[in-house]
Design a protein around this nucleic acid. Structure first.
Lengths: 187, 187
DNA sequence: CGTGGGGTTGACTCAAGTCAATTTGGGTGG
DNA sequence: CCACCCAAATTGACTTGAGTCAACCCCACG
């Protein structure tokens, strides 16, 4: 954050979080990015980045100089459309998170988070039901607008009710169906 | 929402809200737009709009066909940059809302909302301290992740503590300084 | 002049936060 | 290789901020 904007970044391997900081040191996670996903888009409009990105494990990224992308977009219509799509998808993604933070109960938030992760893993050819979280409970909580204790309690509760198995960072989803249904649990 | 995407919209006069709907009817306000602001950006990436826009009073809009804007951007570098900036600003704006929803107490959320409105009014040459809300308590609540009763109570509380005067939709900010300080009230 | 949607207020409830004690497990240095 | 260390995670007891439910008021509109 604050660095002059010059490029956007594609995750080649590994796992990242992005955070924004509020007045006076309070910080919040605004996104998690895995292989094949892009971050740094928030800098496009301003002279500097508005987020800080942090690798949650050893990772590799591809640097995409934005000036170059703009030139390509100017020459090539398909490329331009692609670029706009990328920016817009970030907007839509954020709206989803706003929805989650604004109107879902803690239970539904965590369920939504897990369903989302699962979908992203499966798209990459990993198991949809068996994965390792790269982030801490505190980071999950920050992203979901919850305290770390609440996140921990919810994991335990989900486990007790047979939805999944948790062993620290290792999660195994047992009943994806019921997890999905939790999302609809209205306020 | 759901209509085929074709254009973005600039508010020429009046006031709009945009909403997204969650599984099964539950709806949330994701933005308010006044004179000079743009909405409909959420449709850029997909074939259809992801939000519904609703005028909160008699309003006029300028329709900006997106295909046309893309053509212009392709010819003109400054135009292209402008367009990217517009999209990105929406992302940054959303991050701000995520921060608000994820980590601020009810009091701070409403204060933030009022400070933001005030800044936008003053930029348009209106009074920063004296304005009429075009939206209901319920819409404010939906946007801020609060219930309408909570919003109403907060207005009363702010009034009692001399921060502002409220008379239904008419708001008069008495102590902008202290209102600003409320934002820092950490969780 | 009645009607109804929006707003206000009070009493009560409960989901999530806070504080604090304890466990787990990975990583490090002797 | 083992013992220790410490950050992360878990769990319990208690508190509290915001939600819920319900009664009532205000005022714009037909």
């Amino acid at each position: 954050m604050g660095d002059p904007f010059s490029a956007i970044y594609a995750v080649r391997s590994g796992f990242f979080k992005t955070t924004v900081v509020h007045e006076m040191g309070h910080e919040q996670v605004v996104g998690f990015f895995m292989c094949g996903e892009l971050f740094g888009l928030d800098g496009v409009g301003s002279a500097t980045y508005n987020c800080t990105a942090i690798a949650l494990e050893d990772s590799e990224i591809v640097v995409l100089p934005f000036a170059l992308m703009q030139d390509l977009a100017q020459e090539n219509q398909a490329m331009q459309r692609q670029l706009h799509q990328i920016l817009c998808r970030e907007i839509t993604r954020d709206h989803g998170v706003m929805m989650l933070l604004g109107s879902m109960r803690a239970e539904a938030r965590l369920a939504s988070f897990l369903v989302n992760l699962s979908a992203r893993f499966v798209r990459r050819g990993y198991s949809p039901s068996d994965f390792v979280l790269r982030m801490t409970r505190e980071e999950i909580g920050s992203y979901l607008g919850l305290k770390l204790e609440t996140v921990s309690r919810l994991f335990s509760q989900f486990q007790k009710s047979g939805l999944l198995n948790v062993q620290q960072k290792h999660v195994c989803i047992l009943d994806p169906q019921r997890l999905q249904q939790l999302l609809a649990t209205s306020t």
